[in-house]
Simulated scan of single mutants.
Amino acid sequence: MTIRSTPWPDGTPTWVDLGTDDVEAAKAFYTSLFGWDYLSGGQESGGYLLAQIDGKAVAGIGPKQDAQMPTVWTTYIGSSDVDASAQAVLAAGGQLLAPPFDVMDSGRMAVAVDTVGAVFGIWQAGSHIGSERVNEHGALCWNELHTRDDDAAKEFYTAVFGYQYNDISSEGFTYATLRRADDASEVGGIQKDTQLAEGMPNYWLTWFAANDVDATTATAGELGATVLMPAMDSAFGRMSIVQAPQGEIFGLITIPSE
């Protein structure tokens, strides 16, 4: 478990949020699954909620800004200068769905599309640093890009965030971890996903830690989720992938060791 009160270093996946058609249904699902409580951002936030564990923020849930958009968990990568990061996105061949804007006093953000078509956010901390608790049951513990073109993705994210990569591929598995520019800490991953269905976009997958992956996966199913990958052992711990009732996909994995 990690508790943090200061902004995360640049290049760290620091926050995830869910845009959904039915906020109340999402609240009920994740409360039952992870025990989350919620703090309202007030009327100015447009119905946005901070999901919390013991009073510390772990994720966001809010209504979709566009009803035509899919219901997904969005990964936000930390930046001390979101305007500069947004310009780097454009220079590297990406696009901006939402140019940088202030979110009250919480921070400043942008929403971008990389050169392989995956959507991600950029977050510059104000009063809200992003995740205040990570690496514990019901909290964020990993983010990874699933893409058909990992080489193009690596080139893009190096240009924007200065990442280096540690190739941990094995037979039938092409994967590299993202190493943060300032200290080479491993903060995420890029997987060449040969199983992406035709027409499905490349995407960032959010992983939440679980005390008991099998039990949490079973609970998700009882709550109406679809189990896309049953609980299985891996070199990184026991893991599963589920799709919640409103369509968002996320992973569950054994709590990482310190």
Rank of each mutant, 00 (worst) to 15 (best):
N202W: 14
I253T: 12
Y48K: 10
S5C: 02
A26S: 15
F101V: 15
G47F: 06
T147S: 09
E198Y: 04
D214L: 02
T74E: 13
Q195V: 07
G42E: 00
L49A: 08
P99W: 04
E222I: 12
A91I: 01
S240F: 04
N143K: 14
A225G: 01
D214T: 04
L252H: 06
G42H: 01
T31G: 12
P100V: 08
L140C: 14
S257C: 11
P245G: 14
S185F: 13
A197W: 01
A210I: 00
T71R: 00
I122V: 11
W73C: 07
A225P: 12
P245R: 12
F120H: 11
D150W: 12
S234P: 02
L205R: 13
V119Y: 03
I168W: 04
G78V: 02
S40G: 05
I255M: 12
T2V: 10
P63C: 07
M109L: 15
W142Y: 11
A218G: 03
G138K: 10
S80H: 00
N211L: 05
G117V: 04
R133A: 15
D17W: 00
A176M: 02
S185W: 10
A235S: 14
Q68Y: 01
M69F: 11
A59K: 05
D212F: 03
W15A: 01
T74Y: 02
F29P: 08
D233W: 03
M200P: 00
A28E: 14
W8C: 06
A159W: 05
P63K: 11
G138D: 15
S127E: 07
V111H: 10
Q52E: 15
P9F: 14
A26N: 08
A67N: 08
D21R: 04
S79F: 00
D167Y: 07
A220Q: 09
R238H: 00
L97N: 08
A225R: 06
E24S: 11
T217N: 05
